[in-house]
Nucleic acid binder design. Structure first.
Lengths: 255, 255
DNA sequence: ATTCGAAAATTGGTCAGTCCAATTTCAATG
DNA sequence: CATTGAAATTGGACTGACCAATTTTCGAAT
């Protein structure tokens, strides 16, 4: 039946094909793929082989397989990184925040030089949504994430974008984060954060890298302090971080 | 046969179990896992199920499956990130370098504040190795990567470490990178890069964040210019990058 | 007509057995 | 001792079947 071809690793072919279909919008997020049996017939392979391909898509975070229900498309692009595979990656919130502060501040500054009008427009929308969420007492923080990711996208650099997205993805895998989030929702901190976000957006609109850097740095500093105040944790990555991380800020090298 | 339990997603259990065994050293890197048939019997599951678990391990970069040969342990810890799954991630070298310059410079500065003696010692070793490699006309650039990763490790922040490692991992997946690398090896650029690395190490030893930032920035700037000179590519991420990326560098916010 | 619940259909989860293909092993051969 | 080729090993894939979770259908009760 299958003699020539690459022989080895059939499931990868199928997975790539399906991934391509999803990326191309052949299957929208929220929709379902055809049943395994149909897919098997469509690709002229057996069900076990299709299953293997689906497992890959699942690990990549593209689909979610549910018995009796079907294969649901969850994302249009691979979301992966080890967390998606269900690995233990419960890094302390402070350690993660430390990394985010370092990277996202730079990203914000860089974005100030490269953002487009349409980027700005989308960020504005995200802030509107966040404003509504805060008013509604939303606990999801989806709009928060959206805003930060849009900034990274505004760098026009896919590597930076994916890097920041990867950082945010970790967040949702941490048990401690989820716990803290629930507690934060009840507070009024989010209003302050919304103000922070607006300050960042203002700096981006003004195309002012320094202001964008400062605004983002201050914002994440505030987030960090908020979490510290709320939690009683004794994080090893807290000591020596508070004021030491304010690294560089010298004259421009390069050139 | 399998009535109770979590029912759903059997392969994940098995994969985690096997991953645990590998992580624990039950199977060393280079060794092989038992044949699929044996594993199936050992875990009291069918071969297709074991296969599914192995596919997960393969995607995670832990094992490599070879027909007729067996299941070879490739790594002790998940190496993943989308690239490991064999996805197309052939981002332009310049775009990647842009991201690296932005992030690794900050990381170097941060590392200057937190590096330990043993970190310094390991970096020194890496540079010694690099010196030998350059002299030997090595084309692998393994010591180069090692040095950069050690810097990220010196931040004592695993998120930053993994982020930088993730960036370097992309590098090896890009066709253009490999092509460029071969050409670079023949040149003498690497001697210059070695000098750059030594400058970075000196700044770290002196625990001088600004100097570390500048040294790393200059180094990656040089790498970028080198690649530009060698390649005739017309990368969209080159325009507007050369001097605009020198972002922030203002007074310390935070506090 | 609407609502509710049980039966039927759908769909993924897993198994057992079989055959094929690539690789390795190892003994016979020169 | 090197080479070769057959046999054993091992993964690749298929078929057909049955189970379990979910969804859909449709008739009965209101």
């Amino acid at each position: 039946m299958n003699s020539d071809a690459k022989t080895q690793r059939r499931y990868r072919e199928l997975a790539e094909q399906l991934q391509g279909d999803i990326a191309a919008g052949r299957y929208e997020v929220g929709e379902r793929l055809p049943p395994e049996r149909d897919l098997a017939e469509a690709f002229s392979v057996s069900r076990p082989t299709i299953r293997e391909a689906l497992i890959m898509l699942e690990i990549l975070g593209l689909v979610q397989v549910r018995v009796g229900s079907g294969i649901h498309v969850v994302s249009r692009t691979p979301t992966l990184s080890a967390q998606g595979a269900g690995l233990a990656d419960d890094v302390g919130p402070f350690e993660l925040l430390q990394a985010r502060q370092l990277i996202e501040s730079e990203v914000a500054a860089f974005a100030a030089n490269r953002t487009t009008k349409s980027d700005i427009a989308r960020m504005r929308e995200a802030l509107d949504m966040e404003r509504r969420d805060v008013a509604a007492g939303d606990t999801d923080h989806r709009s928060d994430e959206m805003f930060h990711l849009l900034i990274a996208e505004a760098t026009q650099n896919t590597v930076l974008h994916e890097t920041v997205r990867s950082l945010w993805q970790r967040r949702h895998r941490s048990a401690m984060w989820l716990q803290l989030h629930r507690r934060i929702a009840e507070q009024e901190y989010r209003r302050q954060w919304l103000d922070d976000h607006q300050a960042v957006l203002a700096a981006l609109r003004a195309r002012n890298p320094e202001a964008a850097y400062d605004a983002m740095w201050s914002h994440l500093q505030r987030v960090r302090e908020t979490l510290l105040a709320i939690s009683d944790v004794d994080d090893p990555h807290f000591d020596g971080f508070l004021f030491t991380s304010a690294t560089i800020k010298t004259a421009v090298p390069g050139g």
